[in-house]
Every structure is written in C-alpha cells, then in structure tokens.
Design a protein around this nucleic acid. Structure first.
Length: 492
DNA sequence: TTGTGTTTTATTGCCTCC
DNA sequence: GGAGGCAATAAAACACAA
C-alpha cells in the first residue's frame, strides 16, 4: 500500500510535472470513480479527498480541482437547464417549479439558495407535520437520508449528487430511490412513494396523459405536483395512495417483465415523472460515454427487448435532426435498449432533453457523447478486468436487489466471501458498488424491461485491490436496513 | 488531413468562513 | 491568516465535418 502510494506520488510528481505542459486526462476508471463519488459527496472532506486521491492514484490537488470543476459543471448545466426548463414551462403555461417547491430562482444558482439544498430535516418535519410533499420530494428526502448515512457524516452539502443527476435520479431512476421505494413497498407503508413504483406497478397516464406528448406530460406532471393536496381531492394523491404492492411483487420480476409486458406496459412511455425530467440534462461526462462504449460490447446487447422502446428513445426519433447525423448513435441506443444500465438511463435523459433540442449540450451529446472519446487500453486500464467472469451472480444480485435482504448473504453470493459491511466508512466503497450495479442493471434491463433499477451505476468500476471489495448489494442492503429502522420509526 | 467546436483539466485570483 | 470554494482563463484532448 505504502509502496503503491509511493508509486502514486511518484506518478503524481511526474504527472504534475507533465501537467505543467500537458494536462493529463483522467482515465475512465478514475472518472467513473470520481463521478460516483461525486454523486455521493459533492463536497468531500479532506480526508475523503485524500482517500480518493490515494485510491485513484491522483493528487489531492487534482481531486480537489476535479470536484471543483465538477461542481462548476453541475452548476453550469443546472443553470442552462433551469433556463431551458423555465422557457419550456412558460411556453407550456406551467409555472416552473420543477416539483421541488424550493429554489424557484431561475438561472441564478447560489450555493445555498440552490434547490439542491433541501434540508432533509425540513423535509422530514414537513412530512411529519402533515404537509404535502410531492412524491418526488419525498423520494428525495429518502435519498438524502441515505446519502447522509452513506457518507457517515452529516453533510448537507453532500446531500449528494449533482443537481442534475440528483433531480434526474429523484424523478427517474435513482437506484437508491428505487431501493427505498421498494423497501417501502415491501413494508406496505409508502409503497408507491416512488414515482417509479407507480410506473412499475400500475401507474399509467390516464386520459390525456396518455395521449399528450411527453413534453406536455411533463407540464401536466408539473401542474399536478404544484397542485399537491388540491389535486388529491379528486383522486388518489399522486404516487401516495395507490394500492399497496402485493407481497413479493418485485421478487419475480423476470417472469413478470418478460411474460406480462402488457400488464406492466411501458412505463417509460407514459411516465409522468420521467417526462417531468425531460429537459433535465444529466451531466453526462466522459466516463458515461465510456460506459456506453463498454456497454455496447456487452453480452446483453443481444437480448434487446423490443418492448422497450423508451419514451425518450422515441423522442429521439422524433427529435430528428440529430438523427440524420448521428444515426449511429440512434442505432446504438435504439437497437439495444436493454443492453445496459447507466447509459441507458442517461440516454433517456438526453433523449428527454431532445424535446427541446435548442440546447447546445444536447447537440453535443448526440453529436459526440455517444461516440465517445477514444478509449485506449491504457485508459480502460483497470476498468474491465474481473467483470468478464461475473455472470452468474447477476440473477442473484438482481433478485437480491429487489428485496431487502441481509447484505451479508448477498455479499457472500457475490464475492464468495462474507463481508458484513453495513456502513460505507470508505467512500470509495460506495463507488465500487457500481460495478455490480451495472450487472444488476443489465439483467434488469433484460429481464425487467419496464424499469431500470441501476441508474446510478457506473459499470466496470475498477476493482482496485485495496478498494472496495464491496458489492452493489452492500449499498441497498445497508440502505434497506437503515431505512427499515428509520422508516418504521417515522411511520410509527 | 485540417479546421472547428466542445469538453476537460490545470492554474490563478478572489471571496467567504473559521 | 489559512483553508476551502468559486469563477475565469488558457490550453490540451477529442470528435466531427469538409
């Protein structure tokens, strides 16, 4: 370890020297890890930074710089996005709240006024005091709880994730949220809290939502969210009082998804919440692009499910101008909808943004994001190793992922060694979970086409030796346990 | 192959907080 | 005053079209 540190420092030295003249791109592995970590901790502590630096073989300075720039990037994207959404919302006659109920500042984004900074305690108090809270916000709340827990520190700034991703995950595919909602569903308490739960289960856009375009769905959804309690008067509150899930509803998703697509339908196509995210750029970064590359080679690309013509994919088709140029990208995404996880989700987000393609970034995303940059063998370095052989645990992971289960058994299944890790004392452990998440996601996409549970998965995360032996199961497992206590107490 | 546009990385200066 | 963060800037890396 020390040796490697020395090596790292040596490398850093040289790299620093080199950086004087040439900047050095982060390897995909590093980027993945950084992004993953960034999702958990926007403002890592010094300790965490050094740990990450050590693990990734970068200098703390680089880490700090990267985080700094990453935040800037987030901010910039968020600003652009907010502006875009504001325009869009106004154009559709919808107030631009974006369901957060907070931070209605338009393009301005201040550190503390930012909508991202939702004090979990406030959320909790509001919920407990009976204030209505949009489902998405409730989801966020749980996510926040979890994130804090993960960090093992009360860090509101690490409330996690880029605003974009955060929102995206909140309304879309955050695996944590999924897990949360799943857990909740499992306990029959807040089962449909998660919009995805509704998507997965029974929610289908009713009436006009079915007919309207997704862009309008977004607007409608926004209105619904703003109506809040008022909207509930005439019907079941959005995402709150749906029928409880039957026990074990998620336990046999493979069969369900494959054989009962008509029941499940295609939630994406008429998912108000998904639609609500339209226009929300997910901060696609290079690692995601790399992911797409990696994923494109994945075995599961063969197992595409024609049922999954995601709404955003469809929109991609509709939003056409890019199609002509980037037919490769579209082929890539559309032809293999079930192929991967993270990218696919990001594809959705990107596709969603394509609804108003005026955004330059959208152009770029379709322009280059999917082709990605060159991935040299050197760059991919630690990324892909070890995962070729991980095929059998997929189903295990997946099914285990679906239900709150003791993490120990899961980990045992995955690693063949029992690691009863419950807390992410090591932030990188969190990062490393992504590897298996991807596997889970792949399987999920194949077997459970209606939803992808592993949005935030960063496949092929480099399994550094001293890093995380953890698995994707650790996160949801510990999460479930934590949430078990917390949810029970809060509900009680 | 080259030019262009975009993204990413590194550096620097300023600001805020402790 | 130091540390940390933000913002601006320059430059490298990259993709893509001509």
């Amino acid at each position: 370890m020390e040796e490697s540190n020395e090596l790292h420092s040596e490398e850093n030295k040289t790299s620093q020297d080199n950086n004087n003249k040439k900047r050095k791109l982060k390897t995909p592995a590093q980027l993945m890890a950084l992004e993953k970590f960034y999702n958990e901790h926007k403002y890592p502590t010094e300790e965490m930074k050094s740990q990450v630096a050590e693990q990734l073989g970068l200098s703390e300075k680089q880490i700090s710089g990267w985080f700094c720039h990453r935040r800037l990037k987030d901010k910039r994207l968020s600003r652009d996005e907010t502006c875009a959404n504001g325009r869009q919302d106004r154009s559709s006659g919808v107030i631009q709240d974006r369901a957060s109920g907070l931070g209605q500042d338009s393009c301005g984004s201040t550190k503390h006024g930012d909508h991202r900074y939702v004090d979990p305690r406030e959320v909790e108090s509001r919920r407990l005091s009976g204030h209505d809270f949009p489902a998405a916000d409730i989801t966020r709340e749980y996510r926040s709880h979890y994130t804090e827990r993960v960090g093992g520190m009360d860090n509101t700034s690490s409330e996690s994730s880029s605003s974009l991703q955060d929102r995206f995950f909140t309304q879309n595919e955050d695996p944590y949220d999924v897990e949360t909602s799943r857990y909740l569903a499992h306990n029959g308490v807040f089962s449909p809290i998660n919009p995805r739960g509704t998507e997965n289960m029974a929610y289908k856009p009713s009436g006009y939502l079915k007919v309207k375009g997704e862009a309008e769905n977004a607007a409608i959804t926004a209105v619904k969210r703003q109506l809040g309690r008022h909207y509930q008067e005439d019907g079941p509150p959005l995402g709150v009082e749906f029928d409880l899930l039957p026990p074990g509803a998620f336990e046999s998703p493979i069969i369900d998804s494959v054989h009962e697509p008509s029941i499940v339908g295609n939630p994406v196509l008429h998912s108000p919440d998904i639609s609500g995210v339209k226009g929300q750029l997910s901060p696609r970064t290079r690692y995601e692009v790399y992911n797409s590359k990696f994923s494109s080679q994945d075995l599961y690309i063969q197992q595409e499910n024609p049922c999954i013509m995601h709404g955003f994919d469809l929109q991609e088709k509709k939003s056409s101008k890019k199609l002509r140029q980037k037919s490769t990208y579209l082929n890539h995404t559309n032809s293999s909808p079930g192929k991967n996880s993270s990218l696919d989700i990001y594809d959705k987000s990107v596709g969603g943004t394509s609804a108003y393609n005026t955004n330059r970034k959208d152009k770029m995303r379709s322009k280059r994001g999917y082709s990605g940059r060159k991935v040299t063998s050197e760059q991919t370095e630690p990324c892909l190793r070890e995962y070729d052989g991980v095929s059998s645990p997929k189903l295990i992971q997946r099914s285990d992922y679906m239900k709150p289960k003791p993490s120990s058994s899961i980990e045992e299944n995955l690693d063949g060694e029992c690691k009863a890790t419950k807390v992410y004392s090591n932030p990188l452990r969190v990062m490393m979970n992504s590897t298996d998440e991807m596997v889970v996601a792949k399987q999920a996409r194949v077997n459970l086409p209606q939803r992808d549970y592993s949005t935030n998965s960063f496949p092929q995360l480099p399994p550094r030796k001293n890093q995380i032996k953890g698995t994707a199961m650790e996160m949801p497992s510990s999460f479930s346990e934590d949430e078990t206590a917390e949810t029970n107490s809060s509900v009680d």
